[in-house]
């Protein structure tokens, strides 16, 4: 294990994770809202926001899938050291991290069951940038409409059509994060 793995975690976990969680919660409860996350510095190619989200939510009880270019020894070591999360294939993952292309098709990931729709994966999608523009979002958490640049409207519409089953998404770019729960209706504009 490289020294790099030991660094870039929370210095003051209880308060940093509390603030980070509130940002993630707000993003998911208000789809389209873009939050800023701080406190972690994961190895490349993971973004700060993705690193903070994983430190806040993942642990030894939540298998994580690293997709494509994110499946690096540095990132594996960092995640293992800081969270203890087991690294697994897509089907068993509670969290997955990668670019949209690397994660696709998202139907590989758990969508929950009719009795337990919560047993579904949360995908942490690395984006080049996040803008409040693009796809039109409606549904719970959104007063009228919201907008967010999304990678693949058709796949996300299909995911929402499975409600109450489906996956949920955290989109990350640098230190910024937006979220899309399965309950959001997505339309191209």
């Amino acid at each position: 294990m490289h020294d790099m793995a030991l660094q870039g975690g929370f210095a003051e976990a209880p308060t940093q994770s509390a603030r980070a969680f509130r940002a993630v919660l707000n993003a998911l409860a208000r789809p389209g809202t873009i939050e800023t996350l701080v406190g972690a510095q994961p190895p490349a190619p993971a973004s700060i926001a993705a690193g903070v989200a994983l430190l806040t939510l993942a642990d030894a009880t939540t298998p994580v899938h690293l997709a494509g270019a994110h499946d690096t020894p540095d990132l594996r070591d960092w995640l293992t050291f800081h969270t203890g999360a087991p690294l697994v294939g897509a089907a068993e993952a509670v969290f997955a991290l990668g670019t949209w292309v690397a994660l696709a098709p998202i139907t590989r990931f758990a969508m929950g069951s009719p009795e337990y729709p919560d047993r579904s994966a949360t995908l942490i999608v690395e984006m080049p940038a996040l803008h409040p523009a693009g796809a039109r979002l409606t549904g719970p958490g959104i007063r009228d409409t919201a907008h967010l640049n999304l990678p693949d409207i058709a796949a996300l519409r299909a995911n929402a059509a499975d409600f109450p089953l489906g996956r949920d998404f955290l989109f990350c770019a640098g230190d910024r994060l937006a979220a899309l729960p399965r309950s959001t209706q997505v339309e191209a504009v």
Binding site: A13, T61, T62, P164
Partner: peptide
């Protein structure tokens, strides 16, 4: 901070996020 250990808080936070994603469930 806020009494609960970090692992417990993570577990509760994950449940809250799924609850938000599936309103009423």
């Amino acid at each position: 901070f806020a009494y609960l250990d970090e692992q417990t808080k993570r577990m509760i936070r994950r449940a809250i996020l799924k609850g938000v994603a599936i309103p009423g469930y």
